[in-house]
Write a protein that binds this DNA or RNA. Structure first.
Lengths: 185, 185
DNA sequence: GTCTATAACTAGATAGAC
DNA sequence: GTCTATCTAGTTATAGAC
């Protein structure tokens, strides 16, 4: 409680700015100089808080994505019924709506994240999500439908329809409807 | 007709190797040195055939993706019925199966391509594809379904299911079934 | 048409002062 | 905790020989 006068949450502010830039331009195209400038500090200051550039990327991902793990855990504690799966979809949609920036970040940097050590974690997470949404007894198309449902939510949350007639929430609601319809017994 | 003895297809070979590497590691992480080494030439040779690195990326895209334009054109010449749309899906699946590398390339470098001048072209292409697969008379969920159908094909063509019980073609076939089901009157 | 050599630059990262 | 200064390594790109 003594070692915290004014400096504060610089670490969190770095993550915040980096999240914005990584989501906007992608990890590779974002220079540390850019992050530093936006914060009004130098590159060297960044290195006090993070060991490497990659470290910033990974920290954003790990700090934020545990909600999905909790959702999977919850699903596993429930009976594997269609209704459970539908509830997973609804909750997943809620999560994504509350974290559009993070979703955009993950989508934009998916190829990059995949090649990192943390890519395995991400892969396992997706596998877990798919696992609670499908089962081996289903036909191959139905298994695909379950996986596609996850994407429908992301797609609907993030991508604005080209015509501007519909609000983001309308599209997100429609995405939930489509996704629910893709979950079959 | 005089200036073409033996060298010839170096340009095409550069594109081929670049396609491989860009699809595998992504555009940013691929060094021109790498491409040159794989071909057994020097970086400078690359600059004889292409003005910039970006030029290589763009040339791959433009040289290969015109099949999609032709598909869209064909669809526009047909009556906008459900059956036409289903045929578009089938043909699109055929295209993607024949060009897995290109599909992977596009997926991996989507964020990069988007920020380039050619990104607009890509966007228009997708918009055209969506246009022939949906119409304004449909409900919002049905419009989303039409767009999701396109993704289902890509998804099914590229992503192997985590369990190895199914071949790529089986998954691709299932994807077509799911996609067709997403196209509604 | 392709090479050698190198220019010109930018990135991420570190050392040490304050 | 943040700074200045600098390093190292990698990149794109060009000039000019063969």
């Amino acid at each position: 409680m003594t070692t915290r006068e004014r400096p504060r949450d610089t670490r969190a502010r770095i993550q915040q700015v980096a999240l914005d830039l990584f989501a906007e331009h992608g990890y590779e195209k974002t220079a540390l100089r850019e992050i530093a400038e936006k914060l009004g500090v130098t590159k060297a200051a960044l290195y006090y808080h993070f060991k490497t550039k990659e470290d910033i990327l990974v920290s954003i991902f790990t700090d934020s994505a545990e909600q999905i793990d909790e959702l999977i855990e919850w699903a596993r504690s429930q009976p594997p019924t269609v209704e459970t799966r539908r509830e997973v979809i609804r909750r997943y949609s809620g999560l994504m709506r509350g974290n559009r920036k993070l979703l955009q970040f993950m989508h934009e940097n998916q190829p990059t994240l995949r090649d990192l050590p943390i890519g395995e974690t991400m892969k396992h997470r997706m596998a877990g999500l798919f696992e609670v949404l499908t089962d081996d007894g289903q036909s191959l198309p139905d298994q695909l439908r379950g996986r596609l449902a996850v994407f429908a939510i992301s797609f609907g949350t993030m991508v604005a329809m080209s015509d501007t007639k519909h609000s983001r929430d309308e599209v997100a609601d429609a995405a939930v409807e489509v996704a629910l319809d893709l979950i079959r017994g």
